[in-house]
């Protein structure tokens, strides 16, 4: 395939994530670019500052286990019904990864601040939590518009270097359809560059269909798109395919030990792209 315009190969997409990048990824219900994540691990990306918007599962788990992550910022890392994420837990306990604990709406608000080009967003709640104690970048001020005593927390804007996610549909102009998964819009607006994998890339512009247009992130925000059929596997893609629960349960059993995790990586990641 000739590479021109926004459409690139999966490896070319992975090559656009530099070592040390502030990388934003979506939660498991929102289109996780797992095929691209495996390509990133194969290319040996290092020292990522990974921000989950606002939670992550197997994607963060694999990147952390493979040693690609220096700092993880998230409201939670979980494999859902399969249980806790073993390599994440081990890396936090050993200090191999630096954790910045957050709460879901704080991450959303920090991205909204970046999207608006403002330095911070105020948010209710949070006061009296230990997160606020350890997150020295979060500040409590007095509401300057209140008559009386009204403390409120400020979250600094998060402008990621890269937002990376997977969508059902894209077009050759670089528009991507995300439907109701609007956190992906906020991520793309906030990020300096947005990299997308898509189940299908169609010839016709997504913006020509009024019923699709409101669920489209326009090409303005999208740096590159790679086609990846079943690109969220073993995580599901809403409306397309279910999570591969048996695979994820097997993973949890295997990855309890470091050796088991290495064997999983060798078989499912380092061996190269699986047949779709």
């Amino acid at each position: 395939m000739a590479e021109h315009g926004p459409i690139v190969s999966l490896d070319a997409l992975a090559a656009q994530v530099p070592d040390g990048a502030l990388l934003a990824v979506p939660p498991d219900y929102s289109g996780v670019a797992m095929e691209a994540t495996r390509a990133l691990i194969r290319r040996g990306v290092k020292r990522l500052h990974l921000v989950a918007v606002p939670t992550s599962g197997l994607q963060a788990e694999l990147l952390i286990g493979a040693g690609c992550v220096e700092t993880i910022e998230a409201a939670a890392i979980t494999l859902g019904e399969a249980g806790p994420a073993p390599r994440f837990s081990a890396a936090v306990k050993s200090g191999a990864v630096h954790i910045r604990d957050a709460t879901c709406p704080a991450i959303h608000a920090a991205f909204q601040a970046a999207e608006k080009g403002i330095p911070f967003m105020p948010l209710r709640g949070i006061i009296g939590t230990d997160m606020l104690r350890y997150r020295t970048d979060w500040r409590t001020i007095q509401n300057p518009l209140a008559e009386g005593d009204d403390p409120i927390v400020l979250l600094p804007a998060i402008q990621p270097d890269i937002a990376l996610f997977h969508v059902p549909l894209a077009d050759r102009e670089g528009n991507v359809w995300i439907g109701r998964r609007r956190e992906l819009v906020t991520m793309a607006h906030a990020a300096k560059r947005t990299l997308v994998t898509a189940e299908t890339i169609q010839e016709q512009s997504l913006l020509e269909d009024e019923r699709l247009a409101a669920g489209v992130i326009p090409a303005l925000y999208v740096s590159a798109i790679a086609e990846a059929e079943r690109g969220a596997w073993p995580i599901g893609l809403e409306g397309r395919y279910e999570p591969d629960a048996a695979h994820i349960a097997d993973y949890v059993r295997t990855a309890r030990s470091e050796d088991g995790f290495r064997a999983y990586l060798a078989q499912h990641v380092l061996a190269g792209r699986r047949a779709a």
């Binding site: 606002p54 939670t55 998230a74 409201a75 939670a76 890392i77 979980t78 806790p84 994420a85 994440f88 837990s89 936090v92 306990k93 050993s94 200090g95 630096h98 954790i99 604990d101 957050a102 709460t103 879901c104 709406p105 704080a106 948010l123 209710r124 709640g125 949070i126 006061i127 939590t129 230990d130 997160m131 350890y134």
Partner: peptide
């Protein structure tokens, strides 16, 4: 506590994290 036991950040047992609790519990 949805984060873990023992010291922080290098907890003895680590759980997934606080999710939206730090906000929804207030509202």
């Amino acid at each position: 506590n949805l984060v873990g036991t023992g010291g922080y950040p290098r907890t003895d047992v680590r759980w997934p994290g606080s999710f939206g609790s730090a906000y929804l519990y207030f509202l």
